[in-house]
Nucleic acid binder design. Sequence first.
DNA 1: GGTATATGTGCCTATTATGGTTGCATAAGC
DNA 2: GCTTATGCAACCATAATAGGCACATATACC
Lengths: 145, 145
Amino acid sequence: MNTRLAVATHILTFLQTQAGQPATSELIASSVNTNPSLIRRLLSQLARAGLTVSQMGSGGGALLARPADRITLLDVYNAIDDKGEVFALHDQPNPQCPVGRYVNAVLKARIVEAEKALHDQLAQTSIADMAEDVVEQVRLGARTG
Amino acid sequence: MNTRLAVATHILTFLQTQAGQPATSELIASSVNTNPSLIRRLLSQLARAGLTVSQMGSGGGALLARPADRITLLDVYNAIDDKGEVFALHDQPNPQCPVGRYVNAVLKARIVEAEKALHDQLAQTSIADMAEDVVEQVRLGARTG
DNA sequence: GGTATATGTGCCTATTATGGTTGCATAAGC
DNA sequence: GCTTATGCAACCATAATAGGCACATATACC
């Protein structure tokens, strides 16, 4: 896939570390090291999915819409990815050939299973977990420099 | 992802239904409904991964390199996908920010778990399963027209 | 040996996805 | 009304993907 899941997760994890303080797209962008506009584009997707809320105007910014332990990577994945499909089928197999006629339907069933396994695993991690892991890394990093 | 896994799986399933008869790229292409050249390119990847063998010259073509029940969708996936990664991290988070500094490493660990779940599920299906399912569909389809 | 067949691969093109960027209308606080 | 900040459209550059052509190479068969 692309890096959008990673950036979106970064955003949410960042918001969690802000302890309820609204974060501007510019502030988030400085952590992600990219353009504020790109952050806003992702934030609007996250807001549409109900994961964040944004406040316009001075003193505004983005906040998590609910506790971080109730936002999973699967939620993020679903918010970001339009179709939620890792694999695609090919367009026009030859229906005159038995394999061409049925292989897509057969494969589809297997792919759905595989993607379900992926989703289930993504659902095991919350943004709270992510933030805790980051804090732990900071603690470890502080000792070794 | 792309449709290459689907096409490669189509190719292998097709070969399995050929019962040991070498299939030319042109024959396979007519089933997939695409260009023989594209089929050959995928076949050369599959051959490099040891899943198929190809014979040049008259009467030649492609064959499965081993029994279809010992070729899984994970094998196909690994043969086709260069890096085998569904998700990417973003390039340069800001190391001055704790989140920017560690979020990628933390996320990476979770992503590896999720991809492992995907892989494990893909490994549950063999090309023999695929071919059997197609045959079953043909049988069902024959009744309803 | 010569011909027909078929693979292997490099190169080209069109389309789409992605990431990055700018600009501006809109909303909110002071 | 000024400042801050989002929301969103438009645009560009790059890369991935699918598709296709050409040709060198290898093999079988006569």
